[in-house]
Design a protein around this nucleic acid. Structure first.
Length: 476
RNA sequence: CGGCGUGUGGCUCAGCUUGGUAGAGCGCUACGUUCGGGACGUAGAGGCCGCAGGUUCGAAUCCUGUCACGCCGACCA
C-alpha cells in the first residue's frame, strides 16, 4: 500500500517499527505513561476498545456455560508455593506486599500474577461430589508481573485480562474445554478483530508453568514478529494433586479433578495495532471500533451545516457515530480520525447539502465515495462490512506471504537471516535441540500447529527423525 | 539485572563545554478572519530547570548522591 504521508507526527513503520508503535499508541490516545514504570493509564479511546473486547468475548464465554466470579488480588506466600513448577515459573516476577499499614505482615502476600492457586484453594473446599462439577468460572481482573522491560499493551507490569479456571470430572472433558476455549479465541480474533491466527500446542519448553499441555493462538505482526494472542491450558490433575481437590464420583471412588485455565489480555490491543495499523496511525476493524463513523462538517459555521451533521448522526443512530464539531480545521479533523483508526469518515459541507449527498472515506484504503443522503445508511452498512472482511483478507495475505518452509538447516538459518515471519519446519521433539535453535538463531518455537504437515522425515536443525511440524519465529 | 540515553512552562526541545538569576516552537485562553487534507492575525496566561546535599559572592549550568522514565539485551501474556 503506497501511501502519501499526510501527518508528520507518526514515525513511518519502515523507518523504525518500534517508534511507529509508540507513536501510534500515543497519537491515537490509547494510553499515557504513568509514574510507575510499566503501568499505563488506559485512556478512553483505549479502554473503550477493551470494553468492546470484553463484551464480545464475554458473550461467547457465557454461551458455553461460563460464569463470572471474582477472586482476591492477594496470594499468601504459602499458597503460591503449593505447586512446584508454578511457583518456580512465577517467583521471579511477583510483587510482594510485606506490610499492612505500619506493621509487618506475619506472612507476606504476592499480588496475583495469575490466579490458579486462588481458584485451586477455593475449589478444594467447594467441590465434594461429581454433582458439583464441572466448575466453569472466569474472572475479569488485572494481574501484576514485575517485568524488566515494558511496552504499552505488549508487556506491562499490570495488565487487564480475563482468566478462566475450570474443574472437571474427567480428563476428556478438561481436554475438550481447553480446545473449546482456544477455538473461541481464534474465532473471535478472525471474526471480530480481523486477525488470522495459527492454533497449536506449545512445546514442553514453552508451556505454562505447571500445565500438562498449553495451547496458543499465534498471530503475525506487520514487522514479521509473532505475538501469542491467547492461551488455553490443560492442567490434567497436577494442580488438583498439589492442592488436594478431590470429589466422590458416581462409582463412590475418591478422584482428583481435571482442570483448565485460559486467558486473553490487553496485549491483544497491541496485536490490533500491529496487524492493521499504517503510517497514518491506528486502523480499527469496524466490529471492535468504539466509534465507527466520524462525521466531519466542512465550513461548519455556515448556516445549516452543523444541523445537517447532527441530522446525519441521528440517521446513523444504529451505528457508533460521532460528529466532530470542534473548531479545528477540516484537515486537522481528518488526521485525528485517521490516527484514531475510526473506520469511516463522513464529510458534509455546503456543496454536499445543496446536492443532497455526502462524501464517505474508508480508513483502511482511504478510498472516497460519494453517496446520496437517502442512501447513506445502506452505504455505510455495506462499507463497514466490506472493510471488516477486507481487513481480514489483507491480514491473511500478509500471514501467508510471510510464512516460509525450511527443509534443512541451511535454509532454516538463511530464511531467518534474510526475512521476518513464520517458518514451518520439522522438529525432532527434543528440548536440547529447541534450546540450541534459540541460542544460535534467536528464534523460538511458536507452536506445533493442529494442522500438521509432513514436510520431511528429519529435524530441520539436528537431522534426527522428525516428530512434529513446528512454527518458528521471533516473538514479542 | 547488564549496556546506552534522558529529566528545563501542558508537549518537543535549546541553554550546560566557558557559573551572572530562563528561552524557542507547538499547545492553551480571548477576540477576529478562515474552513473539501494538520489555516492565520492580535493580545494574554503559564517554569522553586527531577530530588537531596556540596563548591561558590552567585548554580539549570560544576561536584557527589539519589529517584524516575525511555531504548537495547537476558527473562516473560
Amino acid at each position: 500500500m503506497a501511501e502519501k504521508k499526510l501527518v508528520e507526527a507518526i514515525t513511518s513503520m519502515s523507518e523504525d517499527f518500534a517508534q511507529w508503535y509508540t507513536d501510534v499508541v500515543k497519537k491515537a490516545e490509547l494510553i499515557d505513561y504513568s509514574n510507575v514504570k510499566g503501568c499505563m493509564v488506559i485512556k478512553p479511546a483505549g479502554y473503550a476498545i477493551w470494553e468492546n473486547i470484553q463484551r464480545q468475548l464475554d458473550e461467547r464465554f457465557k454461551a458455553t456455560g461460563v460464569e463470572n466470579v471474582y477472586m482476591p488480588m492477594f496470594i499468601p506466600e504459602s499458597l503460591l508455593q503449593k505447586e512446584k513448577d508454578h511457583v518456580e515459573g512465577f517467583a521471579p516476577e511477583v510483587a510482594w506486599v510485606t506490610h499492612g499499614g505500619l506493621n509487618p505482615l506475619q506472612e507476606r502476600m504476592c499480588v496475583r500474577p495469575t490466579s490458579e492457586t486462588l481458584f485451586c484453594d477455593f475449589y478444594k473446599g467447594d467441590i465434594h461430589s461429581y454433582r458439583d462439577l464441572p466448575k466453569v468460572y472466569n474472572q475479569w481482573c488485572s494481574v501484576v508481573r514485575w517485568e524488566k522491560e515494558t511496552r504499552p499493551f505488549l508487556r506491562s507490569r499490570e495488565f487487564l485480562w480475563q482468566e478462566g479456571h475450570t474443574a472437571h470430572a474427567t480428563a476428556k472433558e478438561a481436554e475438550e474445554r481447553t480446545e473449546q476455549m482456544l477455538n473461541i479465541y481464534a474465532d473471535f480474533c478472525e471474526e471480530v478483530l480481523a486477525i488470522p491466527v495459527i492454533k497449536g500446542r506449545k512445546t514442553e519448553k514453552e508451556k505454562f508453568a505447571g500445565a500438562h499441555a498449553t495451547y496458543s493462538i499465534e498471530a503475525l505482526m506487520h514487522d514479521g514478529k509473532a505475538l501469542q494472542s491467547g492461551t488455553s491450558h490443560n492442567f490434567g490433575d497436577g494442580f488438583a494433586k498439589a492442592f488436594g481437590i478431590q470429589f466422590t464420583d458416581k462409582d463412590n471412588q475418591l478422584k482428583y479433578v481435571h482442570q483448565t485455565s485460559w486467558g486473553v489480555s490487553t496485549r491483544i490491543i497491541g496485536a490490533i495495532i500491529m496487524v492493521h495499523g499504517d503510517d497514518s496511525g491506528l486502523v480499527l476493524p469496524p466490529k471492535i471500533a468504539p466509534t465507527q463513523i466520524m462525521i466531519i462538517p466542512i465550513q461548519q459555521k455556515k448556516e445549516g451545516v452543523l444541523d445537517k451533521a447532527y441530522e446525519l448522526r441521528e440517521k446513523l443512530g444504529s451505528f457508533r457515530v460521532k460528529v466532530d464539531d470542534s473548531d479545528k480545521s477540516p484537515g486537522w479533523k481528518f488526521s485525528e480520525q485517521e490516527m484514531r483508526g475510526i473506520p469511516l469518515r463522513v464529510e458534509i459541507g455546503p456543496k454536499d447539502i445543496e446536492a443532497g449527498k455526502c462524501v464517505i472515506c474508508r480508513r483502511d484504503t482511504r478510498e472516497k465515495v460519494e453517496t446520496a443522503l437517502e442512501q447513506l445508511e445502506k452505504t455505510v452498512e455495506e462499507l463497514l462490512a466490506q472493510m471488516q472482511s477486507d481487513m481480514l483478507k489483507r491480514a491473511k495475505k500478509h500471514l501467508e506471504e510471510h510464512t516460509y518452509t525450511a527443509l534443512n538447516r541451511e535454509d532454516f538459518e538463511k530464511i531467518f537471516q534474510e526475512k521476518t515471519g513464520f517458518v514451518k519446519a520439522m522438529w525432532c521433539g527434543e528440548m536440547a535441540c529447541e534450546e540450541a535453535i534459540k541460542e544460535n538463531m534467536a528464534v523460538t518455537s511458536r507452536c506445533m500447529p493442529f494442522k500438521q504437515e509432513c514436510l520431511s522425515d528429519t529435524c530441520v536443525y539436528c537431522g534426527k527423525p522428525a516428530k512434529k511440524m513446528v512454527y518458528w519465529g521471533k516473538a514479542y
